[in-house]
Computed example of a mutant assay.
Amino acid sequence: MTTSTRAALLVCPASGKGRAARVAGTVAARLREVVDRLDLHVADSAGGTAALARRAVDDGVDVLVVLGGDGGAHLGVQACAGTPTALAVVPAGTGNDLAGALGTRSVADVAAALRDGARRPLDLGRVDGGPWFATVLCAGFDSAVNERANAMRWPAGPRRYDLAILRELAALRPRPLVVETEDRVVELDALLVAVGNTTSYGGGIPVCPGASTADGLFDLTVVAAAPRRTLLRMLPTLRTGRHVGHPAVRTFRARSVRLSGPSWVAYADGERVGGVPLGATCVPGALTAVSGAC
């Protein structure tokens, strides 16, 4: 160990259909090889996860390691944002988008980063009057997909989002949307809007492929009204990020954004945050993250 490090491991046992609980012992043993002290916390609910995360940060740990999915990571972000405590994520959920953005795809990645002291400042988004988010805030078609995917029991992993996309296409309807930023107002009939701090959501879909966590800006992707057959042809390009070249897609960058118009539900980091209208701001360097090779 190159430095004295006190860490807390926060286990979200239900993540990945119990995978987090099954691997918790192995993960704890691996982390103890690279830190001086490891406190183990096991949450029994989302509320318990949030409380334990805040308790660990208030207790002054150097690193909070979340073993779970994007839901657990999102709660870890709430606790660590604006504090000296760094956040690490060992992925054990369905989407694992924040872990992917941090380059920590396994406990080995996290252990190596802790051993090497690999930490970096990370921009965060913050919903006005609401939570922080680290990855993508979305509304419209993609938030409807999120609602459906969260309610599905099968299949596991990214295929769940793919199936939810196909099912939501049947009910797809464009709605009037107003996107206001510090330097423009865009009004259009839209199918979805994504506000990206990182590139991806839904288990690795690069909806905002140009997003960076170090530029103090959101990347916005807005899909305007288009025939269903056009969207069906566009779907395969979502996995590669090539959708941004489609004529129905508009992209731009902004420090802050306000979405208004439709009666859509918004999701951030895969978690329901409420209805539109809402605003959000990018806060540079709001989080210290344990980072692997992205």
Rank of each mutant, 00 (worst) to 15 (best):
152 M>V: 12
153 R>G: 13
153 R>F: 10
154 W>D: 06
154 W>M: 13
155 P>L: 04
155 P>K: 13
156 A>R: 13
156 A>C: 08
157 G>E: 02
158 P>I: 01
159 R>D: 10
160 R>E: 01
162 D>E: 12
163 L>V: 14
163 L>P: 04
164 A>I: 00
165 I>L: 13
165 I>T: 08
165 I>N: 01
165 I>H: 01
165 I>Y: 04
167 R>K: 10
167 R>M: 11
168 E>W: 06
168 E>N: 10
169 L>H: 05
170 A>L: 14
170 A>V: 14
171 A>W: 10
172 L>V: 07
172 L>A: 07
172 L>I: 14
174 P>I: 02
174 P>M: 02
176 P>R: 15
177 L>A: 09
177 L>W: 08
178 V>Q: 13
179 V>T: 05
179 V>M: 05
180 E>G: 10
181 T>Q: 05
182 E>M: 12
182 E>D: 14
183 D>E: 12
184 R>Y: 12
184 R>Q: 15
184 R>V: 09
185 V>R: 15
185 V>I: 14
186 V>H: 15
187 E>F: 06
187 E>M: 01
187 E>T: 15
188 L>E: 14
190 A>Y: 01
190 A>H: 07
191 L>V: 11
192 L>P: 00
192 L>G: 01
194 A>F: 06
195 V>N: 04
195 V>E: 08
196 G>D: 07
197 N>W: 08
199 T>A: 12
201 Y>H: 14
202 G>A: 14
202 G>M: 06
203 G>N: 09
204 G>I: 06
204 G>Q: 13
205 I>R: 02
205 I>C: 11
206 P>M: 07
207 V>P: 04
207 V>D: 01
208 C>F: 01
208 C>T: 14
209 P>G: 08
212 S>N: 08
213 T>M: 12
213 T>G: 07
215 D>C: 07
217 L>K: 07
217 L>Y: 03
218 F>P: 00
220 L>I: 13
220 L>Q: 03
220 L>C: 09
220 L>W: 08
222 V>E: 04
223 V>D: 00
224 A>P: 07
225 A>S: 15
226 A>H: 09
227 P>V: 03
227 P>T: 05
229 R>I: 12
229 R>A: 15
230 T>L: 07
230 T>Y: 14
230 T>V: 14
231 L>D: 00
234 M>K: 03
235 L>H: 00
236 P>N: 11
236 P>D: 10
237 T>M: 00
240 T>K: 01
240 T>C: 00
240 T>N: 00
240 T>L: 03
241 G>A: 07
244 V>L: 06
245 G>I: 00
245 G>W: 03
246 H>K: 07
249 V>C: 09
250 R>Y: 11
250 R>E: 15
252 F>T: 04
253 R>H: 15
255 R>T: 11
256 S>T: 13
256 S>I: 06
258 R>P: 02
259 L>D: 03
259 L>N: 09
260 S>A: 15
260 S>L: 09
260 S>N: 10
261 G>R: 05
261 G>Q: 08
